[in-house]
Design a protein around this nucleic acid. Sequence first.
RNA 1: CGGGGCAUAGUUCAGAUGGCUAGAACACACGGUUCGGAACCGUGAGGUCGUGGGUUCAAGUCCCGCUGCCCCGACCA
Length: 407
Amino acid sequence: MRLSKLFGKTTRTAKVYDSVNATLLQKAGFIDMVMAGVYNYLPLGLMVLTKIENIIREEMNTVASEVLMTSLSPRSFWEQTQRIDTVDVLMKTSPANDLAKQKNDSEYILNPTHEEMVTPLVQKFVFSYKDLPQAVYQIQTKFRNEPRVKSGLMRGREFRMKDMYSFHASMDDFKAFYEKSKEVYKRIFDRLGIGKETVIALASGGAYTKEYSHEFQTICETGEDTICFDEETNTYYNKEVAPQEKKFKTMRAAEVGNIFPLGDKFTKDWKFSYTNAEGKEAPIYMGSYGIGPSRVMGVIVEKMHDEAGMIWPTSIAPAEVYLIVIGKEADTVKQADALYEELKKQGKSVLYDDRDVSPGQKFSDADLIGVPYRLVVSKKTDGKIEFKKRTGKETQLVSFEELLKLI
RNA sequence: CGGGGCAUAGUUCAGAUGGCUAGAACACACGGUUCGGAACCGUGAGGUCGUGGGUUCAAGUCCCGCUGCCCCGACCA
């Protein structure tokens, strides 16, 4: 798309935050803070978020069905599982006025997670062993009233989450699916460009199971978690559950995903069971599997940037190439316009910097926005195209055919 | 939830010890010059200094409450 037509702008006077992702994403016009931990996504930021979510979606579709559940839930659902008072990040609505108060109890929950929603939903369609297993997922906005938000997109009060829930007729079936989900998650993080630095760490399984849960932790200096690596057993632990030994190598990491066994906690609360092949009632076992796309976006900025700006992996960059035109001579503009159209025809996504601003600003913004390849067309390139990688220093003059081989 | 800091133009900020007819840069508008690393010159528009009280001849500046934001810690199915 043409930058002259794109809503949003880079700015020189952005506030410098402690976290790089909050600073750079706002400076580059990807996001806009509304209040602590709550951000608008502007076009460039939404492009990245959408690409992240689509990669997750493609991989999740291999093991589950996508649904979209509501953001609001009735208070009674949370009373059913007795989490109305124990989950302290719950955001509750207050009655709008006295009239609303008369009509109903007027208090709703803005869902921080969806076990309370998905269990009764699946219960409506599953009765027999023939209906199991089931796995559904959604990608949606979640609300958590965190006592302290911090670090830009890495911990907010409103954030994006992919959450999957699986339902099984037996523990064995659950375990097999749980292992399979790990493989799916690995593929997702590989495609997002952080696979090599993302490890699986054992973590607390929470209140409903004695087993460990598994966190997908991306090694990151500015992450909130500390993980420990046991070289003998080749195992990572979240520090919270690491055995009390001092032999571990510890490092900082950011939790980008978490999968955990739920046992029959929720299915029991909802009296959700099935009829087995012998005609007898049997318990249903559940698992829950999360990835935070907005947090992933923040973590990737934390890990991949330099003093000039962000450096996006190709798979989630807002575009593949950043095309700069310098000068207003008819020939130059014509060549740049034609190149833009040709690249689009070839299926390339292009940010075309056709703005009436100085060359210096275009170069600077290209680095800040951080798409993988930069192209320049000017009087100096003399009918050819200057090519440069965001991560490289040297430029080269190429023809259109040569360019297609490079990108 | 504890501790520290901050709140002034669209944005980022400067305004010691009270004297303000409140400034700068960036952004914006107009004119001109310029076109390979956030160009330059000129002109202009833009503010009830977060909010409610208080002290004072006088409050952006001092005191108290409230609200919001940033940072540290606790917390984080």
